[in-house]
Amino acid sequence: MERRIFLRGAVIGTSAAAFGGTLMRGAAYAAPAQNGPGPYGALGAADTNAIQLPTGFTSRVIARSGKVVSGTSYTWHNAPDGGACFADGTGWIYVSNSEVATGGGVGAVKFDSSGTITGAHRILSNTRNNCAGGATPWQTWLSCEEVSRGYVYETDPWGVKAATRRDAMGQFKHEAAAADPVRKVIYLTEDETDGCFYRFTPTTWGDLSSGTLQVLVAGTATSGSFSWRDVPDPDGSPTATRDQVSSAKIFNGGEGCHYAGDTVWFTTKGDNRVWQLNLSNSTYELAYDDSLVNPGSAPLTGVDNVTGSSSGDLFVAEDGGNMEICIITPDDVVAPFLRINGQSGSEITGPAFSPDGTRLYFSSQRGTSGSSSGGITYEVTGPFRR
């Protein structure tokens, strides 16, 4: 794989994400990532929440599906999925999708500066299979429907403004979204075995009511150059969006998406890969491929949601595998960061950092029961690199 020099920037909290990796450090990278010791050391024994963590880190349960969130009157939703954090004065809000076929939507939990829960509320209701999504620079959450000809809904984390369906962003099996404030576009993944990677350019940045949907065009190799081409009919009728541009590059099951520092990363679960678009020179390559890992077996399988920290570390959650969140460092080392035990019928979803970077939120979508009604949302606190 050709060695490229680029910046991996990552951000903590939506207020930082809004300005495109202002917290970042440069380094040289070679892709794809390989096995090695993680920056936090080996995982310890399972704690009382059945989570294995490195030394210095602790976990707590924030919410359980079907149960009232502690200190509030709000009942947490089933099948918690994609999520993000938003600064709220000296505290923050964590939003979480509900990936159920009917009655889906998004819930939110509010925290004060000490991390104490101060409230919880609903910000979107009665949608379908809200899987992942993405935060915008103007402090909204894009919740994506993972259904054929699904929509993107723009929501208010505070629950004050009504959620709005954003038809111009296309109708397809939406998965995740990531905002690029430099190019003033939103990147979108598609969860199909023959899916595409898209970008949406709003007519006016900050207003998603109109704009242009495009699809990434490239060759069949795992690295090379790319360009963009307009999708003629974003509503996906009568021809699916992924079939409208014959030269579109096909990806096997698009999942998580993360932007920082002139780079966007996205995952594909069908082939356990993390892809990397180098936006400054319009090239793409593999940041991770489980079939190319050396030495030993791949630590990261069931590749799914992805987020990043201000140090440039990527945190990738597993759908299956052995229920781990793995870290991919700026020097292209991949290693487990945490492991959930006793929940093999579940998947890890919604990883997101608090604005100060000291807390990582995520969910086990089906918990110990293996059912959508058994979801558990967690917080991990500790000395994250910044």
Score class of each variant (00 low, 15 high):
40 Y>V: 09
69 V>R: 00
84 A>K: 11
37 P>K: 12
27 A>C: 13
49 N>G: 06
60 R>N: 06
71 G>V: 01
53 L>F: 12
62 I>H: 00
41 G>R: 08
32 P>W: 06
92 W>R: 03
63 A>M: 04
44 G>M: 07
89 G>H: 02
40 Y>D: 09
22 T>N: 13
23 L>K: 10
52 Q>P: 01
48 T>I: 07
91 G>Q: 03
41 G>Q: 10
90 T>P: 01
96 S>T: 12
25 R>Q: 15
42 A>E: 15
34 Q>H: 15
69 V>A: 00
37 P>E: 14
52 Q>L: 09
77 H>V: 12
47 D>R: 06
92 W>P: 03
56 G>H: 08
88 D>G: 02
64 R>C: 00
71 G>T: 04
82 G>M: 05
76 W>I: 00
81 D>N: 09
96 S>C: 10
55 T>Y: 05
40 Y>E: 10
32 P>C: 09
96 S>W: 10
87 A>D: 06
40 Y>M: 08
25 R>I: 05
64 R>P: 00
50 A>N: 11
42 A>K: 13
80 P>T: 01
91 G>A: 04
23 L>Q: 14
62 I>D: 00
68 V>Q: 11
75 T>C: 01
84 A>C: 05
90 T>N: 08
34 Q>E: 11
23 L>W: 07
47 D>W: 03
90 T>A: 14
83 G>D: 05
59 S>D: 04
62 I>F: 00
90 T>Y: 01
76 W>H: 04
60 R>A: 12
34 Q>K: 15
33 A>V: 11
60 R>Y: 02
27 A>Y: 15
80 P>I: 02
68 V>G: 01
31 A>D: 15
29 Y>I: 15
39 P>V: 12
44 G>A: 09
54 P>R: 09
26 G>I: 11
58 T>P: 04
68 V>P: 01
64 R>K: 14
41 G>V: 09
89 G>T: 03
40 Y>R: 08
77 H>L: 15
